[in-house]
């Protein structure tokens, strides 16, 4: 048994220890807000917060997440910064197909928790997730908007 703390709740998981956290979330726990895109940490659709750090769960063995505070998109609005980010995403009408946006919101939340007033360089360095719809300009605008929101 592996014990995980996900969105503030302790969960007992019976899987192989090297199973990627992504598939524990999606299959074992039915939390499908976190997306599978590439499986090799290229696209970032699977991003979750691990002790506040944006982490690509598709290459994170579940045993390595033991003891960490895991926050997924399902609970993002319980974080004050996450709530602001979601509001900026909705207000800025960022998503198109939306498939990458769970990961984008996670990445933006991690950035603004660590760097509340990011420069454009900070945004470029942190927001590396891929978006095939090309919503990058709206993403950058929304990050700036969330940073400026009181």
């Amino acid at each position: 048994m592996i014990e995980l703390t996900i969105n503030g709740t302790t969960r007992q998981i019976d899987v192989e220890g090297d199973t990627p956290l992504l598939w524990v979330l999606r299959d074992t726990l039915g939390m499908t807000g976190t997306k599978y895109g590439c499986g090799i940490a290229q696209c970032g659709a699977c991003s979750v917060l691990l002790d506040g750090q944006a982490t690509r769960s598709c290459v994170t063995p579940v045993e390595s997440a033991v003891g960490a505070q895991i926050t997924t998109i399902e609970a993002i609005e319980t974080l004050p910064v996450g709530k602001k980010v979601v509001a900026a995403w909705v207000g800025g009408e960022v998503p198109q197909c939306g498939y990458c946006q769970s990961g984008q919101v996670i990445a933006a939340t991690a950035l603004l928790q660590q760097t509340p007033k990011p420069t454009d360089e900070d945004i470029a360095a942190a927001m590396t997730n891929l978006c095939r719809c090309g919503t990058y300009n709206n993403i950058a605008d929304a990050v700036r908007h969330a940073a400026s929101a009181a």
């Binding site: 999606r26 299959d27 039915g30 499908t32 807000g33 976190t34 997306k35 599978y36 997924t72 998109i73 399902e74 993002i76 609005e77 979601v86 995403w89 909705v90 009408e93 960022v94 998503p95 939306g98 498939y99 946006q101 769970s102 919101v105």
Partner: peptide
């Protein structure tokens, strides 16, 4: 304003890959 913005910003939008039914194997 687009109708699907909140669901797509909070992980609630459901795609084919997210579908599950009782008794399902993968």
């Amino acid at each position: 304003a687009r109708l699907d913005m909140r669901d797509k910003s909070t992980g609630r939008a459901a795609y084919s890959i997210d579908t599950r039914v009782d008794g399902m194997l993968q």
